[in-house]
Each structure stands twice: as C-alpha cells, then as structure tokens.
Design a binder for these strands. Structure first.
Lengths: 335, 335
DNA sequence: CAACGTAGTGCAAACGTTTGATATTGTCCA
DNA sequence: TGGACAATATCAAACGTTTGCACTACGTTG
C-alpha cells in the first residue's frame, strides 16, 4: 500500500493461471519450451494483470542489467547532447536504458560516478574522460568500457578523426594567403584538443607559415568571446578554434572589438553543431557525434569479452570516424 | 570469472571481519546500533576488499531505488539539456542516478519509456509530455511523477511562467508602434505553446492591435528558417516566436529573403538559450530551465506521498517559475 | 509389453541485501 | 546472589526473478 501499490509478480500470474512460477517465467524467457497453449494462456493472464517482469529482480539473479551508463564532461554542450540523443535512441530500440551523468569537467566526479554506475549497468560509455590512464584501466577491469574522444591502449575507443579535415583547412587558409595562423585551444585535459592542436601546428609548419597556440579555455561561448583580445594581439589573420561554441564566442568577441569575420580575420570551428546558427555561418569540421553515439552503444553491447590472453585482437580496438570540412562564410583571404 | 569478476559482497566482508552478514549491513545502514569498535573494524575490512553495497540487491529488498527518470521530448534542445544538466547535478549530490530518455516528440515512445522506467526508479520527471491526461493519471498511480511545462490537475507541475513577461513584450512592441503582431507557434501538442499563444493573443487584442497566429512547427532551426516566407506574407511587423531556436532560424530565413532584423521586422524568442549566440542577439524571456530541473528533483524526492484522502493539499500543487524579459537587439520600431 | 525417449511442467536453490525477532553478553541495583 | 535492563550481535525470512534438475505422462520402438 505504501510504495508502488501492488505491482503484479510472477507469483500472482502463476496463481491466477494455475501454473507454477517457473512456468510463467519461461513463458517470457523461453516460450519454445512450453506448449503453445500454455504460453498463450499465461500471456493473457499476464496482460490482464498488467504484469511486467521486474528488471531489478532480474538483474540481481542474472548479474547483468539492461542499462548502460553515459558519462560526459558537459551535457549542455551540443556535441554531447547530440551524442546522448543518438545513443539513447539506439539503446531504446534494444530495450536498454541509459544513465546520463555530467561530470562538470571534474576527474573526481567522473570517478565517483563511474564507480556508482559500474554496479548497476552492463557497461559505460565514457566521453572525453579526464581521468588518468591507470584509473581508466582500473575501471575497465570492473566493467566493460567504451571510450569516446580519447584513445587508451587496450580499451575500445571511438573518436572524431579530424586530422585530414583540419589539414585541408590549413591548406586552404595558406592557399588564400594566410601566413600566420592561430589555434584557439579547448580544455587543457582534453585528448581531442591535443590531437587538433598538433594536427594544425604540424601542417602550418609544413607550409612554412607561422603557428600561434592560444592558451586553453573551457570551450564555452564566454571564453571564446573573452579570447578575442588575445587573438587580435597575436597578429594572426586566421584562427582555428577547438570547437564551434568557442568559435561562435570568438566571432562575437571580435565583432565587439570592431573586427569583422571573415573580412578582417578568418575563423574556423569544429563539430558542425550550431555552426550554422550564427552569422556568418562558421566553416567547420563535422563532429559525427550521432554516429559515434550509436557505434559506442553497439560496441558496448557486442561484448565479445574474450578474457582469454590472445593479446588484444578486438578488445583494444580504436576507431576514428572521419569528419568532413563544411564550408560556410567565416573564411576568406587576409586583408 | 565471466562478468564483473568477483565484486565483494556482504558475505565476503563478514567472513573476513569475523562477524555476521547482518552486522556488516548495519555497519553501513545504522552504525549507531553497533559498537564504535565494530563499525571501525568492519569499515576497514570493507575498504580493503573494495566493498560497495550492491544497489540492485538493495533496491529489490527495499522496494525503492536510488534512481529517477527524466523524460524529455528532445534532449538536443538546449532548454532540455540545461534542465537535464541541472537535475543531474542536483541528484548526484543526493546520490541519486538519472535515467535520461528522449521521446522524439512521440506520445507512444513516451508511454513505453515511462512504463519501463516505472519499475526501476523512485520517480519520473516528465517534461513537456505529449501523452493524454488519462494516460498521465494512470502513470501517476504507478509511480511518483513531477510534470514540467504542463499542468495536469492533481499532479505536481512545474513550468516557466511566461505570461507577464510576454505581456511586457507585447506592450513594448505596441509602444514602439507595431500594429500587427504575429505569434510563430511551436509544437502543436505542446501545452506551453498554447499558453504562450494565448498570452500574446489576448494582450495584442487588449491593445486593439491585430494578431496573427502562424501555424505549428517542430521548434527546430530549420522550421524557423522555413517560416520566414509566411511571416513576410502575413504582413506583421513583429513576430514573437515560441522559442529561441525557432526565432534564430527565423532571423536567418528573413535575412535570406533580404529582410533585416530588427530594421524591417522585430523578432522575439523564449528560453534565453543560445539567444545571445546569434547576431543580432534575440530579445527573449528567460526559461529558468536549470532552476526548474533542480526543483523538480526536490519535489520528487520530498515525497510526502499522503495517500490519505485529504483532497489534494500538497500533492497536486503546480508552480510557475516566472521568466524575465531580456533585451537584446532584435526589437525596434516598425519601418 | 517392457523399455525408453521426449515434451511439458514443477521444485528449490540462488542472487545480495534489509530488518524484525531473538539470543548473548555484561552491568547495575536491590 | 538474583533479576532486570540495556547494549550488541545473530538468525532467518523476504524481495521477484532465473535455471539446473527431477518428475510425470505419453507415445514409440524393439
């Protein structure tokens, strides 16, 4: 009478249908072992009683639940919310529930949350983890893990491959005449940020142009806006930002300083999310977040889980989903 | 050896510590009933064994879990992701986990998902439900519910109060000289959309100005852009859009048609989310999503749950969190 | 007609907790 | 010295499932 007043159980159905509890259980889990008549009868009774198997009892006995965890540094970031949306939709089709956890960019919260989830999920998708590698390893011994936007040897990892696309953009900028190109960094602990920075820096150097690395930010709109001053001081005629949020803020910041994009300065972003919302649209690289969310779920559920010591045939695979350049209006020749 | 190889259980700790299972259990749940020495000893052993109580076993026996569900029509919408972020952060501080579910605007999926969640959560926050009232009622008999952005008699409801703010905006538009004001509708099934539409329509009429209601959309950027044609045809000099996403799209659509905001036409939005990202910034009403997310969690967890028939003293309360007008650059006098 | 395979069903243990009832101490007072 | 009482710890049942094993009929076969 107190909590969820009388949900029907296997026992209720069994009594009502005049069979044993195990028979009712089997009517749902392995109907082929029962006579068709029995199955039908039980299903009818069950429907009448509004019976549905209790997932927590089932999880306890089978030792595996129908839920997964998705841990992200910032749910409000459109890249992440898109990924979450796709992962959830994909999971739902497989009758899997999704725990969402936002770590607010904190490695500590990340660990806490993961340990808590480890006990009630069948696996965790860990996006842009800030945790140390040993901690990730430790976690992966407790529960199946799929990493997103970070690669750790021996653990399945998925990320947006942006190197080719960023190189293409650099080539383009240089071709337009830019001789001094800046990279506006994202979060310092971000693996993806290091990758992007390196890709840009190398390509710029390869062209014999100058590279400027602007200090880390939190990848927020306001940080982008605030970075405008530094950008102008740097003397760069083109800025490649860590992501679109940062780039949008930067565009606005530059506008406030009286600089116009792309006439005075060119800007590019990353992830192709909200990049079309601003004006001028920001030239960017697609982030593939939806595809990645979907794949991450698939990987988690596949679970070949060969604990055999065959090295890391499949277990430690990592895969890049390549992003593409999307041209909008934020790139032009230098003044 | 197969799944999560050997997590420590109460039994393991009990054996290692040389006490009974129940004593170990109490060391965690009611330590005041044990001698301090015993408690300390047990906690040491538990820590050494990396013991953590199994939430699913606990949920099974207590009949209530430490998880809640959050069901939204579209996680990718910034209003919802902000709400989710706040709700999750607030829950985490209370050691509560959050299931996130996106219904993709479908009443059917909404129902499925809620029924699934009902069995493994202690309550559900249902945002912008598309379900029918009877279905909501039925659900609320199975599990505690808090509604967001919709009011149903007898069920706790929380929503952004936008009527005063919208009236203020209408007053302002009329004051600037607008004599024909349009409302660009959001999703047809949205309760909030009806509220906003009505507030605007009444106030416009009260001023003796003309009101135009533009047909429903899905509250997406592309729908906003696509509505630009209709807006121009309508002859309105000011458009109040259902939300900021729609408004941003509309601004871009108008630009493509060669109309400038706010010189040719004024635009307002709602929710104050990404409204500052676009240029010109959109005049809007704050959506209070973070505050609402937080409150919703509080309401769900309070759970006075007086099933006594004292009418609906507290149970059916509904509360508006009032939004405020935020002025940006998208409103001006008509041409 | 005995022996046997098989389809269909039931029994009971197990999963890891919580918790009311109960047993075991020891302490204090008369 | 006996009894009452509190403090501490244990016992065992219960939560709602799944599943290996055993059992019952009922053909089928030799």
């Amino acid at each position: 009478m107190k909590k969820q007043a009388g949900r029907a159980t296997l026992k209720d159905v069994a009594e009502e249908a005049g069979v044993s509890i195990s028979t009712v259980s089997r009517a749902f889990s392995s109907p082929e072992r029962l006579s068709p008549a029995t199955v039908q009868h039980i299903k009818e009774v069950a429907a009448r009683l509004r019976f549905a198997v209790n997932p927590v009892a089932k999880a306890l006995i089978t030792g595996t639940s129908m839920n997964i965890g998705l841990v992200v540094p910032d749910i409000a970031n459109p890249y992440m919310s898109t990924l979450l949306k796709a992962a959830q939709a994909h999971s739902r089709e497989r009758s899997i529930g999704v725990f969402a956890a936002d770590t607010d960019d904190s490695a500590r919260i990340e660990r806490e949350v993961c340990h808590q989830l480890a006990q009630q999920t069948r696996g965790i998708i860990l996006c842009g983890p800030r945790m140390s590698v040993p901690h990730i390893r430790e976690l992966s011994e407790m529960i199946p893990l799929v990493l997103v936007s970070r690669v750790v040897e021996g653990i399945p990892s998925l990320y947006t491959g942006s190197t080719p696309a960023l190189e293409e953009l650099v080539d383009e900028l240089v071709g337009l005449g830019h001789r001094r190109i800046a990279y506006l960094s994202g979060p310092a602990q971000s693996w993806a940020n290091k990758q992007r920075s390196r890709a840009v820096s190398r390509r710029v150097a390869a062209h014999g142009a100058e590279f400027v690395k602007l200090p880390p930010t939190t990848a927020s709109y306001s940080d982008g806006r605030a970075a405008a001053g530094e950008v102008v001081e740097s003397g760069a005629t083109a800025v490649m930002a860590f992501d679109d949020v940062l780039a949008s803020g930067l565009v606005e910041g530059l506008r406030r300083l009286g600089r116009s994009v792309p006439d005075d300065i060119s800007v590019t972003g990353h992830d192709d999310i909200l990049a079309e919302l601003v004006y001028p649209g920001i030239t960017t690289v697609t982030g593939q977040s939806a595809r990645i969310g979907q794949l991450a779920v698939d990987w988690l559920l596949e679970e070949p889980a060969e604990d055999s010591d065959d090295g890391d045939g499949e277990a430690g695979r990592s895969r890049a989903i390549e992003g593409r350049v999307v041209h909008r209006g934020s790139v032009a020749a230098p003044p």
